[in-house]
C-alpha cells in the first residue's frame, strides 16, 4: 500500500511538472473556466429569469459541473498519450505498482480540476455569487463537485485506454458532454421540458450534482418538482457517483492490463 502511495506521488509529481512545462494546460484549467463564468454570468445572466433566484447565482453550480465534466477529456488525452509514447511499456517493466499509473493520472487531473474550482469560486464571488448556507454546506457542495470530477477522470482514463487515439478520444468526450450537460438542469430549470424528457433529465447524475450544489449553497430558487432525485439530490448524487466509481475503477484497471498487453 505504501508502495502504491509512493508511486502515485512520483507520477503525480511528473504530471504537475507537465503543467509547468505546458502553460496552455494551465491556461486551459484556469482561464477557460473564468471565461465560462463571465460569459454565462453576464450574457445569460442578463437575459434569463429563474423564479426566486438571481440567475447569476443559479448558473454557477451548472458551470462548476460542466468544468468537472471536462476532466473526461483531460484524463483520456493523458492516458492515450502515454500509450503512444511507449511510457506505459516502461512502467510495466518496472517493479512498481501498476495501479499507481492510473491513480497518478486521475489524482493529478483531480488536482487540476480543484484548481479550476478555486479560480471559478473567486471569479464567481467577484460577480456576485454567494453560498448562503455557511462554510460547511459550501464545502459539502465542493466535495460533491470533486467527487464528480474524480469519477469523470476515471471515465476519461477508461475511454483513453479503450479508444487509444488521442483525436478520437477528444471527440468522444465532447459527444458525451452534450447529452449529460445539456440534458440536465445545469443551465435551465427542467419544468419546461416534455414530461418524458424531464424524467430523463432529473435522473441524469449531472442534474443531481447541480441540484445538490444549489441546495447546499441556497442558490436554488423555488423547487416545485417533487420527483425523487429533485427532492433528495445529495443522496442521489452520492449513490450514483459512488456506484459509477465502483464500476469504473476495476473496469479501467482491466482495460489498462489489456491496452498495455498488446
Amino acid at each position: 500500500m505504501s508502495g502504491l502511495a509512493y508511486d502515485t506521488m512520483a507520477l503525480t509529481g511528473r504530471h504537475m511538472r507537465h503543467i509547468a512545462r505546458v502553460p496552455e494546460k494551465l491556461i486551459g484549467v484556469t482561464v477557460g473556466p473564468i471565461v465560462l463564468v463571465l460569459v454565462f454570468g453576464y450574457l445569460f445572466g442578463s437575459a434569463m429569469q429563474v423564479p426566486g433566484v438571481n440567475y447569476r447565482e443559479y448558473i454557477m453550480a451548472g458551470i462548476f459541473t460542466q468544468v468537472m465534466f471536462s476532466a473526461v477529456g483531460t484524463s483520456a488525452a493523458g492516458v492515450s498519450g502515454d500509450l503512444h509514447n511507449g511510457l506505459v511499456d516502461r512502467f510495466r517493466s518496472l517493479p512498481m505498482s501498476r495501479f499507481a499509473v492510473l491513480l497518478g493520472r486521475t489524482v493529478s487531473d483531480l488536482l487540476m480540476t480543484s484548481l479550476s474550482c478555486v479560480v471559478m469560486a473567486v471569479v464567481g464571488a467577484l460577480i456576485g455569487w454567494r453560498a448562503h448556507n455557511g462554510v460547511l454546506q459550501a464545502a459539502a457542495g465542493f466535495a460533491l463537485l470533486l467527487l464528480l470530477g474524480f469519477t469523470m477522470c476515471w471515465l476519461g482514463a477508461l475511454l483513453g485506454l479503450v479508444i487509444r487515439s488521442t483525436e478520437a478520444v477528444n471527440s468522444v468526450a465532447m459527444l458525451l458532454m452534450m447529452p449529460f450537460i445539456f440534458l440536465s438542469n445545469a443551465f435551465v430549470p427542467l419544468n419546461g421540458l416534455p414530461r418524458w424528457l424531464q424524467v430523463i433529465a432529473e435522473w441524469n447524475p449531472i442534474s443531481s450534482v447541480v441540484a445538490s450544489c444549489r441546495h447546499l449553497w441556497a442558490n436554488q430558487g423555488l423547487v416545485t418538482d417533487n420527483a425523487f432525485p429533485t427532492q433528495h439530490p445529495v443522496l442521489v448524487s452520492c449513490v450514483t457517483l459512488g456506484v459509477a466509481l465502483i464500476v469504473l475503477v476495476p473496469l479501467t484497471a482491466r482495460a489498462y492490463q489489456r491496452a498495455a498487453a498488446r
Partner: peptide, 24 residues
C-alpha cells in the same frame, strides 16, 4: 523497446529521477 520510452515534457534528469523513484 523499439522506440525511446521517455517523457518528452520532462528534462533528461527528471526522466531518470522519476524512473529511479519508481524503482524504489
Amino acid at each position: 523497446g523499439q522506440y525511446a520510452a521517455v517523457d518528452e515534457l520532462l528534462t533528461g534528469r527528471e526522466n531518470l529521477v522519476l524512473i529511479g523513484k519508481l524503482h524504489r
